[in-house]
């Protein structure tokens, strides 16, 4: 049971990271990204190839961040001249390209067989007995660092500018914001975070193949962000946890309801998750938590002046 919970929590951590990326790109900046799974795959393959060729943990994670961030910037730049709806098509296409490349360029990616034997960080020091718990620790620390970084960066001017671009790009531009640059940055930051998620995925399974990076990965991220509240990093952690809880808790349905067989249970699980999301959207369409808004200082400036003089 402990092993099961550890694995689930590791997977939730990775899902939360992917949702963070989507939250910066779509939640805050209003740019939809249906190619998240492709970005995660890119990060995972980068990490796998580097660590299989002798690169260490930090080197391979860092490389994945850079590769995915640059790719994010490129994808957003090439689609900038198109109208915004087409970004959905471009990102969808990007995800598909990555999938086809990983599937067919066997000399690099191992094709459908994937890349086995990715060395897990510090496994010879920790030993295999408690390794899963140790790795969960790494994941939680990384999620914590990314969360703190995002909160600090997006509560301030940068986040405010992104939200302005999302609300009305012409107004943001009229007030002196370089909209194109902000959009590219949002996509690059999101890309970098998916790179981390991909790295962790590669180290978690120590084996990657194209079938791990499917559209459902992107769908979970959207669920987490929608359930948590667009723009709220805290909310999406709750959102990702609730989606994962629904997903996993319904596994135990078969122990409770014995009239159904396994395939029926599998179908019912998905129905329950869908129903849960619909109920959430009916009763809390804005999501679980609202995005951060700057509060006005308590003392009015006129009173501050009078105390100063």
């Amino acid at each position: 049971m402990i092993a099961y919970l550890t694995t689930i929590m590791t997977l939730v951590s990775i899902a939360v990271l992917i949702a963070f990326a989507l939250n910066v790109q779509w939640g805050m900046c209003g740019m939809v990204n249906f190619g998240l799974a492709g970005f995660v795959a890119l990060g995972a393959y980068t990490t796998a190839l580097i660590s299989l060729n002798g690169g260490g943990f930090f080197v391979s994670v860092f490389a994945a961040i850079i590769v995915c961030a640059v790719m994010g910037a490129i994808v957003s730049l090439i689609s900038m001249r198109l109208s915004e709806d087409y970004l959905a098509v471009v990102t969808l296409g990007f995800g598909e390209i990555i999938r086809l490349v990983t599937l067919n360029e066997g000399w690099l990616t191992g094709g459908a067989l994937g890349l086995p034997g990715i060395p897990r960080p510090m496994i010879d020091v920790i030993g295999t007995d408690h390794y899963e718990v140790f790795f969960l620790g790494i994941c939680v620390v990384i999620v914590g660092i990314v969360f703190a970084g995002l909160e600090i960066a997006t509560r301030g001017p940068f986040g405010r500018s992104l939200r302005a671009v999302r609300d009305d790009d012409l107004v943001a531009s009229s007030l002196g914001k370089n909209v194109l640059l902000l959009r590219v940055k949002a996509f690059a930051v999101g890309g970098g975070i998916t790179g981390i998620a991909g790295s962790l995925q590669a180290f978690q399974f120590s084996y990657i193949d194209p079938s791990q990076f499917t559209a459902i990965m992107t769908a979970y991220a959207f669920m987490a962000v929608i359930a948590g509240g667009q723009g709220s990093h805290r909310g999406l952690i709750l959102g990702a946890c609730s989606v994962m809880f629904l997903l996993e808790a319904t596994r135990f349905l078969k122990d409770v309801v014995d009239v159904l067989d396994n395939s029926q249970i599998a179908a019912i699980r998905l129905i329950l998750i869908g129903a849960g999301l619909i109920l959430l959207l009916i009763f809390r369409p804005q999501g679980l938590l609202r995005e951060y808004r700057l509060k006005a200082p308590k003392s009015s400036p006129s009173s501050a002046d009078s105390t100063a003089t």
Binding site: G149, A153, P157, F158, S161, K177, L181, K185, V189
Partner: peptide
């Protein structure tokens, strides 16, 4: 710094 991700960090 309105357009910088890293400045606040």
């Amino acid at each position: 710094s309105d357009e910088s991700f890293f400045d606040p960090i």
